[in-house]
């Protein structure tokens, strides 16, 4: 079989209990982001997504899934696993925000300081990450992305349909509003 040129990629792994979600559970619009904490394009999209969540607090819920391109971003994998270690302590989003706000500080020493700054036991988390306790969890996100047509980061899905546009606030607001009124 030969696949036709342009196909709209669809999210193949539905949002579920294992996902990191912020925003109301019954929000009319779900936005799933595949991201890499060391990717500067994700870093550029981050404040817009936060602002989107603030301005459309009742409309949109944000879901974050890991998509580290480790061969290009050497700290992306450990940052993702550290976020999972924080998630085990119900602190995923705080860690997520810290990582995107300190993208130039993802090396082990600074990362550890950041974890401590959040009031988490840095040595304990580092040991868990060192034992790769969260490697499978991060990999599962990555594979779900690969199978859904994620071809780089950031990639967003708006209600399961890949968003092939940009990430500035105006466009994100327009996309969410269109989905809410669909």
């Amino acid at each position: 079989m030969t696949t036709p040129l342009q196909m709209t990629a669809k999210l193949r792994t539905p949002v579920g209990g294992r996902d990191h979600v912020r925003g109301p559970v019954d929000a009319p619009v779900t936005l799933v982001q595949y991201g890499d904490f060391q990717c500067r394009f994700c870093g550029a999209a981050y404040p817009n997504l936060v602002e989107l969540g603030r301005q459309r607090a009742d409309v949109v819920r944000l879901v974050y899934r890991h998509f580290p391109i480790a061969n290009v971003h050497p700290y992306a994998e450990s940052a993702a696993e550290m976020a999972e270690a924080a998630a085990r302590r119900d602190r995923f989003w705080e860690m997520h925000d810290w990582l995107y706000e300190h993208q130039d500080q993802l090396d082990p020493v600074h990362l550890s300081l950041g974890v401590a700054q959040l009031g988490l036991p840095a040595d304990e988390l580092a040991a868990e990450v060192g034992r790769q306790e969260y490697g499978d969890r991060v990999r599962q996100d990555f594979v779900s992305g690969i199978r859904s047509g994620v071809n780089g980061t950031p990639t967003l899905f708006v209600d399961d349909v890949r968003h092939d546009g940009g990430y500035d606030l105006a466009e994100l607001l327009a996309v969410v509003d269109a989905a809410a009124n669909a």
């Binding site: 500067r40 391109i69 480790a70 061969n71 990555f142 690969i146 071809n151 780089g152 980061t153």
Partner: peptide
């Protein structure tokens, strides 16, 4: 670009 096709395939190699 930072996530180009060949870099992506390297990351996807285990699959």
């Amino acid at each position: 670009v930072c996530s180009d096709q060949m870099s992506l395939y390297q990351a996807a190699l285990p699959e």
